[in-house]
Design a binder for these strands. Sequence first.
DNA 1: ACAAGTCGGTTGTTTTTACAACGAAAAGAG
DNA 2: CTCTTTTCGTTGTAAAAACAACCGACTTGT
Lengths: 219, 219
Amino acid sequence: MKKFIPILKRTQLFAAVSEEEISSMLSCLNARLRTYKKGEYVLRQGEHLDDITVLVDGELHIQRDDYWGNRAIVDRIAVGEMFGEAYIAPESGALLNDVIAVEDSTVMFFDVKRIITVCSSACRFHSMVVQNLFFAISEKNRKLVQKLGYISKRSTREKLMSYLSEEAKRNNSSSFIIPFNRQQLADFLSVDRSAMSNELCKMRDEGLLEFNKNAFKLL
Amino acid sequence: MKKFIPILKRTQLFAAVSEEEISSMLSCLNARLRTYKKGEYVLRQGEHLDDITVLVDGELHIQRDDYWGNRAIVDRIAVGEMFGEAYIAPESGALLNDVIAVEDSTVMFFDVKRIITVCSSACRFHSMVVQNLFFAISEKNRKLVQKLGYISKRSTREKLMSYLSEEAKRNNSSSFIIPFNRQQLADFLSVDRSAMSNELCKMRDEGLLEFNKNAFKLL
DNA sequence: ACAAGTCGGTTGTTTTTACAACGAAAAGAG
DNA sequence: CTCTTTTCGTTGTAAAAACAACCGACTTGT
């Protein structure tokens, strides 16, 4: 547990909280650790969750497969990011999506009730975490709206362009590496892989961009 | 201001807070009231927002128009619902969407910093509002994921079916009234209106559903 | 009551996407 | 190192959506 404290310190949830303070909060928040093999389910659609979780190692996808086998990747969780924040409320109901480890991963679980119930004395740094949690959920919210922006575009080309230019902006560079392979990108943008691959190559041939595997450059 | 207190009492933000307590919190949270005519912009893409807002009368759409005139309706805000919760963090940046009044509307603005900064003494009921705000943002998050589920469906028919069956479930009835006209529904689901209208009629002819204007019945 | 505007359905054409199938290249396993 | 699996581009075809245009019914404002 201890060895992940430096990682926790760099997360949004524990921003501006010192390692000593984090250490003392771990038990206060009933922190638990669990590891998952690549391909293993962390949570399944239909389950209930009473925790906020932070990924401290590996990579996760939040996704959903429908009856016809179409997979939709709702979100990608990188080290230091949270998930489960949509199920904070006691009456939230069951999970709508699966959470799956796309790499060997380690997840830390925190009792959500202990975070959002403001304890008057116990932890001096609690209020900072409360505020951090607000900012984190709020930002997640904004990211979801942004993703809605991508996939509400009518054509595959527009979806690709809005996603790729956002990534370029985020990296402050026209060259960047995306965290998806082709199939995953297609599942993320909700389009057919081969059609998307086709469109990407057309865009390359038209001189709009260059790419080599996951490395892209907008022109 | 006073006359909206009974409405505020029924909102998620002020759940379990008495009218007297709300009344005393209004100044504490620097509440302000503003009215808008039908069609008027409440907020515009690119503006900055330092408040949490609650709609106390009318109806709003959160939407975005692109260069080609295509409108995407991201969300619909009904009386008692909040918006702006995605911009709580000071570094949130500019609004990504427009907020427009689709009916004559009245909006109440609250200073967000005063909500999330836990004041040790001032308001006894502050902590309840903090918790309510957590639940509200969290639920909004879940709703966004749900909407992602609708529009990530590949075909117009699937988009319609997932949206309509969710509405049926939400109303606990196979008969229900949707809050959109055809153009708005198309903008909400990110499809072409005429194609959607066509598909709706096909589905009706196949015996999947019945409808009359905004009243639908799943069969 | 009348004119102007909105709304929803319909149709035909063009463009785009989904789907299926295949092969080459790269990555991974033993 | 070789065999297997995965990944990605490519192609052709069938299906679906976008687009444009039109009409009739219904609203709204004057």
